[in-house]
Simulated assay, not measured.
Amino acid sequence: MRKLVAAVLLAPFAIGFLSPGAAVEPPAPDPVFHFTDPEITESSGLVARDGLVVTMNDSGDGNRVFTVDPATGDTVGVTRWQGDATDIEALAPAGRGEVWVGDIGDNAGSRDHVEVARVPFGRGDREVHAPTYRLVYPDGPHDAETLLADPATGRLYVVAKEFIGRLYAAPEHLDPDGPNRLTAVDEVLGIATDGTFTPDGKHLVLRNYGQAAIYTWPGLQRVAQVDLPRQQQGEGLAISESGEVLVGSEGAAAEVLRVDLPLEGASASPSEQVEEDGERAPVRAEEQRSWWPWALGGVAGVVMIGVLLRSLRPRD
């Protein structure tokens, strides 16, 4: 009963935070390819670089990433590396010919640390020894499916997959002996399943199962939120060097779609700051949200509490 009451009390906050601040016409889906490899059944992350697409399976798979030719959907290379995966959930660009792989899933909230590895990708199969780093949250374990890499600084960020999403920053320089302690930055899109920076580093885009949110960087002002095309279980998002936006899904032979997001019209936040050495620094900024989602959430919460109390009333 305590859990039910807690869920009811949280409902207005969840509704208010997950609702879009401004309505934007949903982008039309444009299928690019589907995965032909029967080994790719739970694509949970995407990176689009060097004319190729990189993906991996999430929880239950081993330490491997697939390099896919988007012209055919065929796997053209598989990279494997040392160790045993716990719950790989995310990818991020790591420079030419490399990706960051995030072993950051934690559905049970029981891991004392999560890990990221820097792994090469490309045509041809290979086995490598990948540099691996331990990350530790400042406030206890979190489940996460989103790993971000700032193209200007290379700094990594993790987004906790919760009703109110939380962005955490890794240290500027990762210590291979660790642990590397994450720092809380700000609140972002809830239930995020993937995300990426734009190639110029001026914005970041997060997605959940049905929506994408666009933020200025480093101001973290949300400038757009749009519905995404329906997919079986949308968990992938990538932006190529040319700005092409791709979204993917779990499932055998899942399609990867091209979508047009309002990135060019997104203006820079007035609260963005630049450090003296020229590197961008994360700056907390309150998102400008409409009042109506919170009102809707409040009404829903009152109604739900009323129904709950009525159900608990003794009956004659």
Rank of each mutant, 00 (worst) to 15 (best):
140 G>A: 15
144 A>G: 09
10 L>W: 03
295 A>Q: 04
270 P>H: 10
181 R>Y: 09
238 A>V: 06
47 V>A: 01
80 R>I: 07
264 E>F: 10
268 A>F: 09
140 G>R: 06
39 E>K: 10
70 P>E: 15
184 A>N: 15
37 D>F: 00
200 D>P: 15
237 L>K: 07
167 L>V: 12
89 E>A: 00
200 D>E: 13
47 V>P: 05
107 N>K: 05
88 I>F: 06
30 D>H: 08
290 S>D: 07
196 T>G: 06
80 R>D: 07
67 T>K: 09
20 P>S: 04
184 A>Y: 13
284 R>G: 14
254 A>W: 00
120 P>E: 10
47 V>K: 03
52 L>R: 11
271 S>V: 15
177 D>Q: 05
228 L>H: 00
219 G>Q: 07
191 I>Y: 05
14 A>V: 14
241 E>W: 10
137 Y>H: 11
252 A>S: 09
215 Y>I: 15
200 D>R: 13
209 Y>K: 01
244 E>H: 12
18 L>E: 01
314 P>A: 03
182 L>S: 13
224 A>H: 12
308 L>C: 06
142 H>P: 13
109 G>T: 11
7 A>I: 08
312 L>H: 08
144 A>N: 07
266 A>Y: 01
140 G>L: 10
235 E>I: 00
203 H>G: 07
140 G>W: 15
185 V>C: 08
295 A>R: 09
82 Q>P: 12
70 P>V: 07
297 G>Y: 02
223 V>P: 08
75 T>N: 12
264 E>I: 12
49 R>V: 06
185 V>G: 10
7 A>Q: 13
25 E>K: 01
214 I>V: 08
16 G>N: 02
8 V>I: 05
144 A>W: 14
134 R>E: 11
201 G>Y: 08
221 Q>G: 12
191 I>E: 02
220 L>N: 03
60 G>M: 00
311 S>L: 15
134 R>I: 02
167 L>R: 08
106 D>I: 15
161 K>H: 13
2 R>T: 07
132 T>L: 08
255 E>A: 13
58 D>T: 12
258 R>C: 01
188 V>I: 06
173 H>C: 01
199 P>M: 10
95 G>P: 03
189 L>G: 03
258 R>T: 08
32 V>F: 14
306 G>C: 02
198 T>I: 04
148 L>E: 14
5 V>D: 03
190 G>Q: 04
246 L>T: 00
101 V>F: 09
166 R>M: 06
110 S>Y: 02
232 Q>F: 05
